[in-house]
C-alpha cells in the first residue's frame, strides 16, 4: 500500500505508537486492567502481550488507586510506564495518586525528580454505558498544575501525541474518546511526534471560529461543511491540548473571524469552554469580537442510558450548525 495513504483506526494508531515506544526504549511498559490476553476493554492494546510478553504488558488487579501509584513509583525510579484506565470514569478511584502525587512530586521535591508517566483514559458518551462509564473528566485534570492533558482527535494525532507523551519527562494524561477508536485516517509509518501544547487549525474560515476538542472536532467540521452552502465560512480549531493550552492559536483565529463558538462534550459549566472564552475575553481579541461568545457543552446531568436521551446530553451536528448560523447571522 502507498505509505502516504496508509489508513489505521484511532485504536490501531495508539497500539502502533505503544509498540514503537517499546521498541525504541526498554524502559517503556504498559500497565492496566485486562490489557494482556484480553487486549484491553476497547482492544487498544490488542495482541501486544504476545509481542512484548506479560512482563511488559502487565495486567493489574482491579486496583485503580494502587495501580496508578505503582505507575507513579515506577516512573520516578527510571521506568516509563503507560498506564491504561479501563474507563476514564475510573480516574476518580486513582485521583489521589494522579493529583497529589504524580502532578506534585517534582515540585514538592524541588525539581529533584521527574515523573515521566503516561496515563490513557477512554472517555466520553455514546456507547450506552450510562452514567459511570461515559464521562468526560479532562477538565478535572486540566485544573492541576504539574499535569499535561491532551485530547487527540484523529488517528494521526493519537499516534504522534502518544509518542510525544512517552518522550515527555512529565506526567501526560491522554483522553481518548471511545467513539473515535474506530475512526480511520491517515497514519504515517514509523516514529513521529505531534507536539503537546499546540492546537491545529483543521479548517480555515473567515466568519466564525469553532474551538473544539476530541470528538467534537469532527462534528464541528461536519457542521462547517454543511454551512458552506449557505455561504458561511467556518474556521475549526482543534485544541488538542487543554494543559498547557495554546492561547495564541485561539486568539489569532478569533482576531481573524471575530466570532467564537466553543464545542466540547464535557459538562458545560466550569469546563474547557469557560477557559477558552475567558482567555479570549482577557486578550486583545476581545476588541475584535462582533458577537457574544457561545459555548456548546454537555448538559448539566449525568449521562443517561436511553439512547435518545444520551444523544441529547452532548452537542450534536445539528445543534452546532444552528448555533454557528445564529452567531454569524447576528441572531445572538
Amino acid at each position: 500500500m502507498d505509505a502516504a495513504v496508509r489508513e489505521l483506526s484511532y485504536a490501531q494508531a495508539i497500539q502502533e505508537a505503544m509498540a514503537i515506544a517499546m521498541d525504541m526504549d526498554e524502559r517503556v511498559f504498559l500497565m492496566g486492567e485486562d490489557i494482556g490476553v484480553y487486549g484491553g476493554a476497547f482492544q487498544v492494546t490488542g495482541d501486544l502481550v504476545e509481542r512484548y510478553g506479560a512482563d511488559r504488558v502487565i495486567d493489574t488487579p482491579i486496583s485503580e488507586l494502587g495501580g496508578a501509584g505503582v505507575a507513579v513509583g515506577a516512573a520516578v525510579t527510571g521506568m516509563r510506564p503507560i498506564f491504561e484506565f479501563q474507563f476514564s470514569d475510573f480516574a476518580t478511584l486513582g485521583m489521589e495518586q494522579i493529583v497529589n502525587q504524580a502532578a506534585k512530586m517534582r515540585f514538592m521535591l524541588g525539581g529533584e525528580v521527574s515523573v515521566p508517566l503516561v496515563m490513557r483514559f477512554p472517555a466520553g458518551s455514546g456507547t450506552g454505558a450510562a452514567a459511570q462509564h461515559s464521562q468526560s473528566l479532562e477538565a478535572w485534570l486540566g485544573h492541576v498544575p504539574g499535569l499535561k492533558v491532551i485530547q487527540p482527535a484523529t488517528p494521526h494525532d493519537a499516534k504522534g501525541m502518544l509518542l510525544a507523551a512517552v518522550a515527555d519527562p512529565d506526567p501526560v494524561m491522554i483522553f481518548e474518546h471511545k467513539l473515535l477508536y474506530k475512526m480511520k485516517g491517515h497514519v504515517p509509518e514509523g516514529h513521529y511526534t505531534v507536539p503537546i501544547g499546540k492546537a491545529e487549525i483543521r479548517r480555515e474560515g473567515r466568519d466564525l471560529t469553532i474551538v473544539a476538542t476530541s470528538i467534537m472536532v469532527q462534528k464541528a467540521l461536519d457542521a462547517a461543511a454543511a454551512l458552506e452552502g449557505e455561504g458561511i465560512d467556518i474556521e475549526v480549531v482543534d485544541l488538542r491540548t487543554i494543559r498547557p493550552i495554546d492561547r495564541q492559536t485561539v486568539i489569532d483565529s478569533v482576531k481573524k473571524t471575530s466570532r467564537l463558538l466553543c464545542v466540547y462534550e464535557a459538562v458545560k459549566t466550569l469546563g474547557i469552554g469557560a477557559e477558552v472564552s475567558a482567555m479570549v475575553a482577557e486578550s486583545e481579541a476581545f476588541d475584535y469580537l462582533d458577537a457574544p461568545i457561545v459555548r456548546l457543552g454537555g448538559a448539566e446531568t449525568p449521562i443517561p442510558y436511553n439512547p435518545d436521551l444520551e444523544k441529547a446530553t452532548v452537542p450534536q451536528v445539528p445543534g452546532i450548525i444552528a448555533a454557528a448560523r445564529d452567531l454569524v447571522k447576528g441572531v445572538r
Binding site: G69, V70, G73, T77, Q101
Partner: peptide, 15 residues
Amino acid sequence: GGIPIAVGAALSSKM
C-alpha cells in the same frame, strides 16, 4: 500515599 509508590519503585528494581 507513599505505599503504592514504593511498590512501583520495587517494580522498577525488578524490571
